[in-house]
Simulated assay, not measured.
Amino acid sequence: MAKLEIIATATFGLESVVKREVEALGFKVLKSEDAKITYMGDERAIVKSNLWLRCADRVLLKMGEFKAESFEELFQQTKALPWEEWIPEDGRFTVTGTSVKSKLHSVPACQSIVKKAIVERLKETYACEQFSETGAEFTVKVTILKDRATITIDTSGAGLHKRGYRINDVAAPIKETLASAMVQLSFWKEGRLLVDPFCGSGTIAIEAAMLARNIAPGLQRKFAAEQWPTIKNELWKEERKKAFSAINYNAEVRILASDINPAAVKGATANAEEAGVDDCIEFSVQPVAKVMASEEYGIMIGNPPYGERIGEKADIQKIYKDLQKFFVKNPTWSLYLVTSDKEFETQFREKPADRRRKLYNGRIETCYYQYYGIKPPKSNA
């Protein structure tokens, strides 16, 4: 199999998590930059990356990178790339783009030039003037940053956060990729109790259960590259089969998830069933004030509501007070909480968070606050 450069794109703040995931799959990381991890792999690596990366947004095949200060340079260097190795004669392809701090600042013009260059290359290869465009779909992206162009093809299709289990949604849901990162950045692991008192559609609890059971996040969905002739169907079948056999049904997973909204809990339960993890999550309808600690050294991970109106603010301040009471009573517990409310830290307790990390839920800037409880004895750790 050919050696390829692959890029896993990531939301700002999650690069280190995605890098760890890429390395855990056995691939050599070449570069870790803002919002992307570049690594070496082959066709099988594209398949495994799409099936297994929990926190990446997309998996891109890197076609080339070069300096482009004029449309002529962009055209010629794009045309020089081996497009026929990936796009068949009947392939459908679209070109998207971005340009930041570059001489070629008109994105529509850059997209048009790249499209024309690819068409010219394919015309010469397939010796034809017209293409039917009835086959597999290819999304080419041209990204120009400080006059340096990177040309990629998207192998994922829909973003990787679309796992396929979310059949019921709530307002302003947390993205699956962010939920998984929150769990991975916490001290929670198999055997410890996990509580999410603001479960909404159940995403944090479901992602934690899938992580503990080693369920590949992409098992229930399809990817753009599954239709590409260059990546054989056998590879997808083999890697899916391996992923199914890797599921650990014996993992000790104990998760309590609750919400004040009965409709949200009903939807979360259905989503957990769809994900195949409903047997290790106990859902209930209750406010934060009713959450009890049935044991020591538990982990609470949550995404509380936030609002602008006076009534909402009063409700949210009560939630913070209830959380505060819980953690005063239970000093062995740890709290991991993501919110866009910049007042949370000062309202929760005088002592600042042990760690903070700026993260994005879609386009919303949030902060991930981490408060560490008393460490468990080593036998319980």
Rank of each mutant, 00 (worst) to 15 (best):
M1L: 06
M1A: 13
K3G: 04
I6A: 11
I7G: 06
I7E: 14
T9M: 06
T9P: 01
G13V: 00
L14R: 02
V22C: 09
G26D: 08
F27W: 12
L30W: 02
I37G: 05
M40E: 15
R44M: 10
I46T: 08
I46V: 15
K48D: 01
K48Y: 00
N50T: 05
L53A: 07
L53N: 09
A56L: 10
V59D: 01
K67W: 04
E73K: 13
Q76F: 13
A80Y: 06
E84V: 02
E89H: 07
E89L: 12
T94L: 09
V95H: 08
K101N: 13
L104G: 07
H105Y: 15
V107K: 08
S112E: 11
K116P: 05
I118N: 04
E120R: 12
K123R: 15
Y126K: 02
Y126T: 12
E133N: 06
T134F: 00
G135Y: 12
E137R: 11
V140I: 15
T150A: 12
D154T: 02
G157A: 05
A158W: 00
G159T: 11
Y165N: 05
N168F: 12
D169Y: 10
V170N: 02
A172Q: 03
A172N: 03
P173Q: 03
I174L: 15
S180R: 04
S180G: 15
L185D: 03
R192E: 13
L193W: 06
L194Y: 09
D196S: 10
P197M: 11
F198G: 07
C199F: 07
I204N: 05
I204F: 10
A208E: 08
A209K: 04
A209D: 05
M210F: 10
R213T: 00
A216E: 03
P217W: 06
K222P: 00
F223K: 01
A224C: 01
A225N: 06
Q227E: 15
P229G: 04
P229L: 04
I231N: 03
K232F: 03
L235V: 11
K237A: 12
K237E: 14
K241W: 01
K241Y: 06
A243E: 02
A243C: 03
S245Y: 02
E252F: 07
L256I: 13
S258H: 02
I260M: 08
K266W: 07
K266A: 14
T269R: 14
A270F: 03
N271K: 03
E273P: 00
E274R: 14
D279G: 00
I281S: 07
E282L: 10
Q286H: 05
V288E: 00
V288C: 11
I301E: 09
G302S: 14
N303H: 12
G307V: 08
E312Q: 15
I316F: 03
I316N: 14
K318R: 14
D322L: 09
D322I: 10
Q324N: 15
F326Q: 06
F326L: 15
F327L: 03
W333P: 11
S334N: 07
S340D: 00
E345P: 03
Q347I: 00
R349M: 12
K351N: 11
R357K: 15
K358S: 13
Y360N: 08
N361L: 04
G362H: 08
G362N: 09
G362L: 10
I364H: 01
Y371V: 01
Y372M: 09
P376S: 07
S379Q: 13
